[in-house]
Amino acid sequence: MSEAKGMIINMKIVVPIKQVPETSNVKMNPETGTMVREGVESIINPLDLYAIETAIRLKEKFGGQVIVISMGPDKALEAIKEAIAMGCDDGILLSDRKFAGSDTWATSYVIANGIKQIGDFDLVICGERATDGDTAQVGPGIASFLDLPLSTFTSEILSLNDGKIKVRRLVEGGYEEIELELPAALTVVKEISDPRLPTLRGKLKAKKMEIPVWGPQNINADEENLGLKGSPTRVVKIFTPKVTREGEKIIVKDEKTLNEAVDKIMDYLIKKEFI
């Protein structure tokens, strides 16, 4: 960023995060082509780590505080504490039976109301999307509920001053630069930062911290807007696609088989009209 050093703005930054199933060690079932999900542990949505890192860096540069907020079961406290161990200052868990079954509309509503309750914020920074639901709708949804200017797919923060933030966002074929008045909302992509690892000091701080758990009454939520009742969408059915295709396999051992393999690729490309 390009500001003069030592400029203290005292940012209040809210980072909504989601706890998701860990999938990097998951194996594929070769018959059904689906993930084997038994005994999978829960982690912070990997794409939220970039939002957390971005917020912490802004705080380190301009002063202020970073508050993480998450909607989920009690177990999601782990994700909030992990974010605090990375360097966030506070956390809030939005948890209630009435929140269960929320689609992206109702989830955005609950989180936006939680953020309203925190109040007085300068920035809301979200990950690009969650790796389980993969909708990328909650970040813009929150911005819409809070009526904030929004930059999605943000890849760099260029400057921050005079109540404005200048950012670069990743779009088809290149980047766009836009400027938003604060308070504003960002969703960020991986390019924006390299997340830090949680430290011992961070872990000790997080352990001692009491994380408030807010229900509908704490965030002035209209019960009509919560959970299944508040969700405009309904899941009709869920099914497993069949994706495995056992194709031809050629083993390259020497010059001869190498040529045969390349012949095969050429035939394929020609037959399917790729060249």
């Binding site: 056992e246 396999k249 050629i250 083993i251 390259v252 095969k264």
Partner: peptide, 11 residues
């Protein structure tokens, strides 16, 4: 290779 229509085992 489980997904490939054509698989080449080689460098």
């Amino acid at each position: 290779f489980h997904l490939a229509n054509l698989g080449i085992v080689g460098d």
